[in-house]
């Protein structure tokens, strides 16, 4: 017994994790990322889904030392050593949490431009879980 994200729960977020489609509240226009049942701003529950650009900036970040990540990431940590996690402020305004990949931790700053990419998150129960991570956006400053 411990913490664990079941496959049905994971599957319910595929639209967000695979395509970065997120709901905007019909009543107050607030973008809810990640999606929620009741709007984070006004509490109503009717949304229109839209595709986000995947562009954002580092709001805050950390470099987690090897062995410090949840057990789902044990294999990754053997391969990658430390891992970089950030709160990303999206161009559309909302914030998300995600790994930064293909990046040199020394280069990351609060405010660094990022763009979303499709990567493996982890491998559990013989199932590869895919989703978005972010890389440094080399085309922006």
């Amino acid at each position: 017994m411990s913490s664990y994200v079941s496959l049905p729960i994971f599957a319910s977020t595929l639209r967000e994790r695979y395509r970065l489609e997120e709901p905007r509240c019909r009543s107050c226009g607030t973008l809810n990322v990640p999606a929620r049942m009741a709007c984070i701003e006004c509490g109503r529950g009717d949304f229109d889904w839209e595709k986000l650009t995947g562009r954002g900036r580092v709001f805050t970040y950390t470099v987690i030392a090897r062995g410090g990540a949840p057990t789902e990431f044990d294999e990754q940590q053997i391969m990658s050593g430390s891992l970089v996690v950030a709160i990303v402020e999206l161009e559309e305004g909302a914030k998300v949490v995600a790994q930064l990949t293909d990046c040199d931790p020394e280069e990351v700053r609060v405010g660094s431009p990022l763009k979303a990419v499709f990567r493996k998150l982890y491998d559990q129960e013989g199932v590869v879980r895919y989703g978005y991570k972010f890389v440094m956006d080399e085309e922006r400053e």
Binding site: Q76, S80, T101, D102, R119, K120, L121, Y130, K133
Partner: peptide, 11 residues
């Protein structure tokens, strides 16, 4: 990399 495979590259 550790988080890439033919699926992610193909996407």
């Amino acid at each position: 990399s550790y988080d890439e495979d033919p699926v992610t590259m193909g996407v």
